[in-house]
């Protein structure tokens, strides 16, 4: 029995370090855009917001003006300058939604950078930390 336990422990440890659901969800978001030639798509995993909270981000950057105009239509951007932000659905970030405790995506669209950032929020701690990060860094 003792030997069985010793044999199984490394396996259990190995399995416990893999396969997080959040990771899979953000990967799906990344994959849904990654094949598009007109977009540079990147996924930043575990971006640190504070000592205890990290967040996964997918960035979509248009290669040229035409690609950006297409993105603007897809994401329903009305303004043509500045930065726009909203909470989006995890499967369809262009669709605006409200916070109800379920996972959402904070979408930030910058016309100047021709970039859209998708910040996946899984829980209240991440939601708070994201806002705190913005406030604290603006102060600094």
């Amino acid at each position: 029995m003792k030997r069985l336990y010793i044999l199984l422990l490394p396996l259990v440890l190995l399995l416990s370090c893999t396969g997080e659901p959040e990771e899979v969800a953000v990967d799906a978001l990344y994959q849904s855009y990654a094949s598009r030639q007109e977009l540079k798509v990147a996924k930043v995993s575990g971006l640190k917001l504070c000592d205890t909270v990290r967040i996964d981000v997918v960035l979509l950057q248009a290669e040229d003006e035409a690609a950006w105009r297409q993105m603007a239509v897809e994401f329903g951007l009305r303004d043509t300058t500045g930065t726009t932000s909203w909470l989006g659905d995890t499967l369809d970030p262009a669709q605006r939604t409200a916070w109800d405790g379920q996972p959402v995506v904070r979408v930030i669209a910058s016309h100047e950078r021709q970039t859209i950032g998708l910040y996946r929020i899984e829980n209240e701690a991440q939601y708070d930390a994201l806002i705190d990060y913005q406030l604290n860094h603006i102060k600094n």
Partner: peptide, 19 residues
């Protein structure tokens, strides 16, 4: 990233700046 040759740090900085 779906492109080769872009440094990781550029994307991280972009993610922070956008916020």
């Amino acid at each position: 990233c779906n492109r080769i040759g872009v440094a990781d740090s550029q994307w991280v900085t972009l993610a922070e700046d956008l916020l």
